[in-house]
Write a protein that binds this DNA or RNA. Sequence first.
DNA 1: GCCGTTTTCGGCCCGACTGTTTTCAGTCG
Length: 573
Amino acid sequence: MTIHNQEIADRLERAADLLEIGGSDAFRVRAYRQAAQTVSGLAQSLADQVENGADLNELPDIGQNMAEKIATIARTGELPQLDELEETLPAQLSELMQLSGLGPKRVKALHQDLGIDNLDDLKQAVDQQRVRQLEGFGRKTEETIAEHLARRQGQETRTRLMEAEEVADTLARDLDGIEGVQQLTVAGSFRRRKETVGDLDILVTAEEGSAVMERFTGHEEVREIVSQGETRSTVVLRSGLQVDLRLMPEAAYGAALHYFTGSKAHNIAVRRMGVERGLKINEYGVFRDDERIAGRTEEEVYASVDLPYIEPVLREHQGEIEAAQQDRLPQLIELDAIRGDLHCHTRASDGHESPRAMAEAGAERGYAYLAITDHTQNLTVAGGLDEARLREQIERIDRLNDELGGRITVLKSAEVDILADGSLDLPDSILEQLDLCVCSIHDKLDRSREQQTERVLRAMDNPNFSILGHPRGRLIGKRDPYDLDLERVLAGAAERGCFLEVNAQPKRLDLSDADCRLAKEMGVKVAISTDAHSSTNLDYIRFGVDQARRGWLEADDVINTRSLEALRTLLKR
DNA sequence: GCCGTTTTCGGCCCGACTGTTTTCAGTCG
């Protein structure tokens, strides 16, 4: 059985929790957490790497000891140190740590003094008002625990970026209108454009802050005020999304922006560099002794530790600091580099508009080309095209191109189903008349890793195969990716001259950021496409570009930054 | 547990807010 990276990360995280509850050295605990984060951010299978004798010690902040622990988990699924910990402390104490307001000290007290081993025990103790009797706890703390216990019932805590963006835009507009507000930025993982965000961090500079704070905590969307201070308040919106507002002096804007954009691991690394240079870096600036020497802009903060500016999308402590030091940060792809969209649907299958409407919308966005990729016959629920209907579609697009007079070129294409045996669901005789084929898996998602990988590789053997659509098949927060050996798929794509898609649908974002990085490392270019089902969906492209940027991709790594001629050349296999 | 232009030992990011306290510990980001 192959151990997945996430399973390795989970074990390290659990070990960190139990070590912390047991009162272990805080820096050792941090090392485990940092390792867990690094591991979960990798697209390559660590189990495979370990098998191939890779040196995990080369990963950032993973030393010899941690590398051995990871290798042990990867090989055996077990971590002896974790087993030992679980002999002295119940494993489920780790779950208590997830509860907001409960940290290691309180969990330890709950366990030692009240014999609480798990969430059920805790619920019972809260109901019997036994928690408030503990030293250091009180009525209020017990009530907070009760609330969080009630709320966590089946609730997914992370919000997809697009939904977060709607909320952020509304709040930002309302707060930005207040007199005296100078600058307002939504920072945090939102600014780093993570595919999901846990909360929103809004950073404001203003001459007079109290009006902003009042407007914020009194906003009609607010369900609950978690905390409220002069410079920082936290609320929960009716949607369940938590929002923090921080008020900062103008002169500290850059330092605050850096601080609140995170990631935490990135910040710690930067501050550590500050310490090495005798500097103290916090949200108010960069200080030597008590003198502020920088902080108005983020550039100043980075410059104080001899680094160039690092884009927010890269600040995940996944090697960006080392890259910056060595002057090899990527020139990240920009939205305006996109010359066309290579995946969209029309009324011919499950889209909502005509090919013409989609083409016009593409032209309005300045695109040189747009591929119409309606579903094919295997996907009956979407009204997939059979051979005859695809032939009609081809003729329709030929006529449409004549009518458009070169304002935009509509590419003849289809989103072709990859059948379980790896064959495509329309004959080559029709597929070879298309400009390109986006090929996707839509059924039999539960096949084994070996079967699914073979299925894709066999499909790529077909010379008409151009781009693997939504390669992982995941739906964020709803459906796990199907089991696929992405490294083998990428190697296969590299050999055969195929491409992988970065599907820009906010619910998909598939490839992921880590997958993009792996694709680049393995020399496979991607297409960033929206999978639009209506003309407005074409705007989703920005989510795809953000994901690609998080994956360190440059314009050259993305085929639809090419001119039509250059694209046609790339598509020839 | 990690790491090295001060170091192979001895450091390790830093401040705000809350609740339970009578000056601070715990938690969070």
